[in-house]
């Protein structure tokens, strides 16, 4: 699997920088959760955030689409640029931003609506379709991209909560894809899934890389190695090391990274 990763890295060497974070600090009340994190995330690349629990990788991910805004006590300093635009600028509407930066969560969270309505939710609120046929089209495309279409095409009106765990998570991915985001953030998307469903989602992530910049938080180092081209290792709120996945896993520069990936800490 390391071979696959290194083969893919060759293709991404010349891509642009999609997200640039500079000296990002996050505070939860008095707790300094993220310290001085600077990172450049490339377009059309899968970037994995790894690190022990509580190291701040999920927190940092949630900074990228301003989901931390919904938490009262969270405070963010520093600068995060997406396509050169500061997303914490006052003129930026977080609602618009989140349409551009989609998110898939740890636990599948389909809305208590039909499968169709789950996927159509984003396109409807953002007015992406002019006609009903348009909407049908968008839903079908999103479900196909999430490799779910064949399984649900005959029961689009059935409730999304009735699907299996793996199907629910792919439904959530379809829901995020339907909004046509430019960046897709995934917060441990496979932690509630069994190995088969995990395999399906991982395959899907690899396909999504064609069009999107994907950032994935994962606890599984094998998963990071399998799906990502770049890996960032977080420890105690700091970004310890950020490099190509191949390098992180075969020749880490920092001793903490080495200890973590060999299982001595974490």
């Amino acid at each position: 699997m390391y071979d696959t990763a290194s083969r893919l890295e060759g293709q991404v060497s010349a891509t642009d920088i999609k997200i640039a974070a500079r000296d990002v600090q996050v505070f939860y009340g008095d707790n300094h959760a993220i310290k001085d994190v600077s990172v450049d995330i490339q377009d059309k690349t899968v970037t994995a955030f790894i690190g022990p629990s509580g190291c701040g990788k999920s927190t940092f991910l949630r900074c990228l689409n301003r989901m931390n805004d919904t938490i009262d006590i969270a405070r963010i300093e520093g600068e995060i640029l997406i396509d050169g635009e500061d997303i914490y600028d006052k003129r930026v509407d977080p609602v618009q931003l989140r349409a551009k930066v989609g998110m898939v969560f740890q636990k599948p969270n389909p809305f208590p609506k039909s499968i169709f309505d789950n996927v159509a939710y984003g396109p409807k609120i953002h007015g992406l379709s002019k006609t009903r046929a348009d909407l049908d089209d968008i839903v079908e495309r999103a479900l196909r991209r999430a490799a779910l279409w064949d399984e649900v095409k005959d029961r689009l009106t059935a409730p999304g909560t009735g699907l299996s765990g793996g199907q629910q998570q792919r439904l959530c991915i379809a829901r995020a894809v339907a909004t046509e985001p430019e960046v897709l953030l995934m917060d441990e998307p496979c932690s509630a899934l069994d190995p088969i469903a995990t395999g399906q989602v991982e395959e899907l992530i690899d396909e999504l890389r064609q069009d999107y910049s994907v950032v994935i938080v994962t606890h599984s180092m094998q998963q990071a190695a399998r799906v990502s081209q770049k890996t960032a290792f977080f420890h105690l709120g700091s970004l310890v090391e950020y490099d190509t996945t191949d390098k992180i896993f075969t020749n880490p520069q920092d001793s903490r990274t080495e200890s973590y990936i060999t299982g001595r800490i974490g």
Binding site: M67, T70, R98, A99, V104, F105, N109, Y121, I125
Partner: peptide, 17 residues
């Protein structure tokens, strides 16, 4: 569940939506 709110905000929905 908060997860449903997060899911909706994550898709760029406003609070009242």
């Amino acid at each position: 569940p908060q997860a449903l709110r997060d899911g909706s905000y994550g898709l760029g929905a406003t609070q009242s939506e």
